[in-house]
Design a protein around this nucleic acid. Structure first.
Lengths: 190, 190
DNA sequence: CCTCGTCTAGGACGCCCGTCCTACGACGTT
DNA sequence: AACGTCGTAGGACGGGCGTCCTAGACGAGG
């Protein structure tokens, strides 16, 4: 097996395990078992656990950037793009109920660990924040665009935390609907 | 030192450390050092780490029940009571920026650990949910009272996660103001 | 003064962690 | 056929963890 392919397998497995069990609670042995490799050998690919975290964050950034590009391509209307973001909470409701938001839970954990990589993980949310800001600006809310973007993020994080606790599908749908209505009330009538 | 007093010291120290560092990341040695006791001796007071967690949750429940009783005593108007809840996000902004919401971060962590005590920790948020539900009912929103209560919780959790990441006081104030306006727009004009 | 229950110190136990090292198998190149 | 490189296996290492045990300090009641 080429080193690059193995590396990708490791990152993919670590990504899933960090999400499902948390960063600290996931051991090298766990990742090794998931990939089917011996645990000591990991140092050929990653020199530390932080290096794996770094690769996972980079992979998530790539994936999210892909989402944003797709939304921009598929939706010419900025409001429709924002709606796509709001709806991931509903689309991914099964995972969110089981494990929360992948970005929010990771930043929450790294903040408690006072991990040096907190800010890098935060860039994932910043990616969405900046993209949402731009969409609100295009919608004609230049002044408040960043505040509106943060409000959408606030909604998504709050729903994720409580959906993870109560595992209530109806709650998720209600909040998403409410956010949809908020967005609709915000824009000038189309 | 009497056993009860020592127990309370342990619970108080564990409460703070679980909040600041997280449950799993806090060791018996950490708590022992904070209280000034020897680590092995803990088993005289608590037979397991889960037992300490249980005591911490109970202590937090007591404290929060005290808050609710005080708000009810000081504010005859249900809307003013709800406002008191909304404003704890701002009142406790320093702690929230440093460590997030004590209840939200704990449930998030316990969910990832698949810890058996997740639901007990969840009762802390349920306490607020039910209390807010009752206040909305008193406000005349019996039908939607629980949904409205969940919406307030959603706000508080979302703000806590993002305030913990970005540590931005202005963001907290803006979201709290927005929530205040939401609450004001909700009730029949007083 | 002695005894007994209460509380504590200190460390042993087995386990798992992240890290690091060395030896070996597989394989393309000369 | 021999070599050198790439990727792997497996375990050693030092340390920290939750748990558990035992011996003793202390003080109240006989």
């Amino acid at each position: 097996m080429t080193a690059i392919a193995t590396r990708e397998q490791i990152v993919r497995a670590a990504d899933r395990l960090f999400y499902e069990r948390g960063f600290e609670h996931t051991s090298f042995a766990d990742i090794a078992a998931a990939v089917g490799l011996s645990r000591g050998n990991f140092y050929y690919h990653f020199k530390s656990k932080a290096a794996i975290l770094d690769a996972v964050i980079a992979a998530r950034l790539d994936e999210r950037r892909g989402w944003l590009a797709r939304w921009e391509a598929e939706e010419p209307d900025p409001a429709a793009r924002i709606l796509r973001f709001i709806e991931i909470v509903h689309v991914n409701r099964a995972d969110i109920q089981a494990h929360g938001c992948p970005l929010g839970t990771m930043t929450t954990e790294l903040a408690k660990l006072e991990h040096t990589m907190l800010m890098q993980a935060g860039e994932l949310l910043t990616l969405f924040r900046d993209w949402l800001t731009e969409q609100f600006r295009l919608l004609g809310h230049a002044e408040r665009s960043e505040d509106l973007a943060m409000h959408v993020l606030t909604f998504s994080q709050g729903v994720a935390v409580l959906a993870n606790l109560y595992r209530d599908e109806n709650y998720i749908r209600r909040e998403v609907d409410q956010m949809r209505a908020w967005l609709h009330a915000l824009q000038p009538t189309t």
